[in-house]
């Protein structure tokens, strides 16, 4: 913490520098649109964003999925989970709603994953939806049987990185380049990697909400 006048003058200087930098950018940058669209047909998907994420810059995404795993490992090693006080309570409104909403949310996450090959969507969007569903489930005291199984949760959290790394190694054996998928098979490789990533991203986001590792006993029994 520093005096306000000092922080203020630092900020004004930074704003001036950033504004100048932003203003002097070319008005019509070439970007990488042309390059990515030119090779889109070889990527195995027709959505350019998914092609960039899983094919052209797959290495980058592999590391990002690794960062998610590091974050949840860090949180699990720091704290035990705090179960919301309401978990397991009696909900006249929420419980019937969740009975309908949770399966729909899981279905929608899978749909987003599938549609990501040719329209906006993909593992990260689906994972966000899955994470939200998990948060809702925890708040409503549902999904206890899943949250009781710390071993299964751990496998789910690691799955994304694991499948990604195995795919990277296999693609290296088959085609000689890291995450350079054999020609014509890009779509299948991307779908497999994304499916694993979807589970890991969803679980990571949902379990982060608990703020720590679930204890061996899982959710405390409602009394």
């Amino acid at each position: 913490m520093m005096p306000r006048w000092m922080a203020g003058s630092f900020s004004v200087c930074l704003l001036a520098a950033l504004s100048w930098a932003v203003w002097s950018l070319p008005t019509a940058p070439k970007g990488l649109t042309a390059e990515s669209l030119a090779r889109l047909a070889e990527s195995g998907v027709t959505n350019p964003v998914t092609a960039v994420l899983l094919n052209f810059r797959g290495y980058d995404t592999l590391l990002e999925v690794g960062v998610l795993l590091l974050a949840i490992v860090g949180v699990w090693s720091l704290r035990r989970a705090d179960w919301p006080r309401t978990a397991g309570g009696d909900f006249t409104m929420l419980a019937p709603f969740l009975r309908v909403a949770l399966p729909l949310l899981v279905l929608a996450a899978g749909y987003l994953l599938w549609i990501g090959a040719f329209a906006p969507g993909g593992a990260f969007q689906g994972g966000a939806l899955l994470g939200g569903a998990l948060v809702l489930a925890v708040l409503g005291g549902r999904g206890r049987h899943i949250l009781n199984r710390r071993d299964l949760l751990a496998i789910g959290l690691v799955l994304g990185v694991l499948v990604f790394v195995v795919a990277a190694a296999l693609s290296m054996l088959l085609s000689g380049g890291l995450l350079q998928f054999p020609s014509g098979q890009g779509g299948v490789w991307i779908l497999v990697i994304e499916s694993a990533a979807l589970i890991s991203i969803g679980l990571t986001l949902g379990l982060l909400y608990l703020g720590g590792r679930p204890s061996k006993g899982g959710l405390p029994r409602h009394d």
Binding site: P29, T33, L37
Partner: peptide, 11 residues
């Protein structure tokens, strides 16, 4: 702002 039919997918 990039030219072309769709926005730059990389950013």
């Amino acid at each position: 702002q990039t030219p072309g039919p769709v926005p730059d997918p990389v950013p």
